[in-house]
């Protein structure tokens, strides 16, 4: 989808700000979201990584830009829990109302109850298997081929960045068959297809404004590509 997440080439965001001695987590709630994601994934409630990414893409664009990385994860998790019927938005809202009158220490004390049972399902087979697949049609392209990318995006999840649409590049690596995120994110099956690294000259992507002697290499699935 043409969402705010598709940031490549957008202008106006200013300088990259680096922190000195940055911790892995800035605040406890970030680690809480990380652990919640793992707990939800262990239950198999996440569906798959492509569904999770698409849930993040669908959050409010303004929130996407301001709520930071773990704020985006949290919104994505809420969407998936609600859509799968595991937890309704109303339940979270009600809990927020209940907790908002407590100070943080009280909230944490309430949260830190022992686990009711210690058995957790192992990560679903899909999570362990990763996204590579054995069987697939032979790749249509070989290293050195020139290809043109799709001209249009998709209303759903896709991994063809908008800045690389309708552009000519050359195949620089061929990686075998991988789960196709565009279908997998929507419950339409894995539909494994060939994955390639495609190199694009800066001038092809950005015209005269492109910096000289720079190229961008993007991992692209075969359905995005046509022979040029």
């Amino acid at each position: 989808m043409d969402g705010i997440h598709d940031l490549g080439g957008k202008q106006g965001f200013g300088k990259v700000v680096r922190e000195r001695q940055e911790p892995a987590f800035h605040e406890r709630w970030e680690a809480s979201v990380h652990a919640s994601m793992v707990a939800i994934a262990v239950q198999g409630w996440l569906g798959n990584i492509d569904r999770f990414r698409h849930a993040i893409e669908r959050i409010d664009p303004a929130a996407y830009l301001t709520h930071t990385y773990y704020g985006r994860w949290l919104a994505g998790l809420e969407t998936l829990l609600e859509e799968s019927g595991k937890l309704t938005g109303g339940e979270i809202d009600a809990r927020v109302r209940k907790m908002s009158n407590l100070d943080q220490q009280e909230r944490l004390t309430r949260a830190a109850r022992p686990r009711l049972y210690f058995e957790t399902k192992p990560l679903s087979e899909d999570a362990i298997r990763g996204a590579q697949r054995e069987t697939h049609a032979p790749p249509r392209f070989v290293v050195g081929d020139t290809v043109r990318t799709s001209r249009h995006g998709s209303d759903g999840h896709t991994r063809l960045p908008a800045y690389a649409r309708d552009k000519i590049g050359r195949i620089v690596a061929s990686h075998g068959a991988w789960v196709f995120p565009d279908t997998n994110a929507h419950g339409l099956g894995e539909q494994p297809c060939s994955l390639y690294t495609v190199a694009f000259e800066g001038s092809e992507l950005w015209g005269g404004a492109g910096e000289s002697d720079a190229e961008v290499c993007i991992d692209l699935f075969e359905p995005y590509l046509k022979r040029a």
């Binding site: 809480s32 979201v33 919640s36 949290l74 809420e78 937890l87 979270i92 927020v96 909230r107 109850r113």
Partner: peptide, 14 residues
């Protein structure tokens, strides 16, 4: 608000 929602989700999962 985001922090609070994270803690609410945490408490529901707990």
């Amino acid at each position: 608000q985001v922090r609070l929602r994270a803690e609410a989700l945490e408490s529901l999962l707990v």
